[in-house]
Design a protein around this nucleic acid. Structure first.
Lengths: 247, 247
DNA sequence: CAGTGGTCTAGACCACCGC
DNA sequence: CGGTGGTCTAGACCACTGG
């Protein structure tokens, strides 16, 4: 530990634990503590910041509710490695055999750099006309195509993926983002709508033209809250099923 | 206060605050504290149960996350009056004029007692063949029909509604359940699926037969966790839009 | 076994609300 | 102003994990 002194938030309109949470958040977003690894023990952190244990626990609890940290009794507190990869299947019930735990395979049908449309640029926080990496991706369960995705990624950030061999990417994108580009996807916002497939989209999914579909528009954010992905996912409306709890 | 003695959970595999939360929960579900009213102050409760303030606060916090209590700084802790009424509109974007805050009106098209089907009896926790109150309900925005609902209510509990004048019910059901039947809806589970309207359903909603629709199957639960309502809501798939956040 | 997070105590003071 | 919940302290002991 460096300093056992007592540096409270000095001046703020906020509580001390909120200020401490900001400290911890900074050490995470700045890469001081990497995703998946553990952070120092509560008692250590409390002494380092010259604060009571309970206060430090409140700060940590705040970041846990925000999805940045994860506690494991007896093991430690860990930086979350990002959101799961197969979350899109939460919205669908594809009856592929009996294996409900099956994870979908992924195939990149197309990968190219294009100028961002005004809409895409806005959501990604780019200037109009800046370039993005655009992917067309097909996901399948046991060989059966089920989801068709169009993905836009801001280009200065995702340059390591341009021109790379997509057959080596594996079935999950978010771990790839982290390994190749250092981008940790921490949070996402999905908007669900209903629509119809075009003839082209239907062909890729093995469905007729104008077949009803569910469209999921996703915006994904990294640890610092920056939007790092815009994605449109299409799936058969008849396979759609989503459960939610209301309080 | 009755006893300032110290009755810890005696024997349990659970924590003390979890045990206290169970105590508080019981006093709520048994009607000791009514929805909307405040419960005694934290310090009072802590002394009554012979426990430290922080422990009682943990117990209260647990019930807050479970949606049973609500804290208001400087005012007190209150029993939640149940979930909001217009939650079904969360799933849809009807463009009725420009008024997005408009609350839908409600019309009961039919009200009758029927024997519960096996499926309905199971979800409501009844014996097969027991009677339920079945409602057919149309909700409209500015005179435009938008949602068609079929509702089943377990009958011993909702007997006060049988044969009553449905034109006096108002636009929200859950406040009615509470006033007439003493039922507080605290939690609900919604399952979203995609389907098509029958000719009859389409007629009621002003849409053609086989028009694509979203079906919301709701199960609502009271404070004690009992299922007190089963509801199927149908709405135009083209008006469907739902946003959710993922962590 | 040592180290971690989880629970609990018995206080103190602050911030907000309503009268 | 008194009463409420919100923050904070400086300890103690328990429960779980891993070597």
């Amino acid at each position: 530990m460096q300093n056992t002194a007592a540096p409270p938030p000095k001046v703020e309109g906020q509580s001390r634990y909120a200020w401490l949470a900001g400290m911890l958040r900074a050490r995470i977003t700045e890469g001081d503590w990497v995703p998946g690894a553990s952070i120092p023990a509560e008692t250590t952190l409390a002494k380092e910041h010259g604060v009571a244990l309970g206060t430090m626990r409140q700060a940590i609890a705040l970041l846990v509710t925000q999805g940045l940290l994860e506690r494991q009794h007896g093991r430690g507190t860990f930086v979350r490695a990002g959101i799961g990869g197969a979350t899109m299947l939460r919205f669908f019930r594809f009856r592929a055999g009996k294996d409900l735990s099956a994870s979908p395979t992924s195939e990149i049908l197309r990968s190219r750099s294009v100028k961002a449309s005004a809409a895409v640029a806005t959501t990604l926080g780019l200037q109009a006309g800046e370039e993005v990496l655009e992917l067309l991706r097909l996901r399948s369960l046991q060989g059966e195509p089920c989801l068709l995705e169009t993905i836009q990624l801001p280009l200065p950030l995702f340059a390591p993926l341009v021109g790379s061999d997509t057959s080596q990417w594996g079935d999950l994108l978010y771990p790839l983002f982290q390994q190749r580009c250092g981008v940790t996807v921490n949070r996402a916002e999905d908007v669900l709508r209903f629509g119809q497939l075009t003839k082209e989209q239907g062909r890729r999914l093995g469905l007729p033209a104008e077949h009803p579909c569910v469209q999921v528009e996703r915006r994904a954010f990294d640890l610092s809250g920056r939007c790092v992905e815009r994605r449109i996912t299409l799936g058969d409306a008849h396979a759609f099923q989503y459960t939610l709890n209301i309080h």
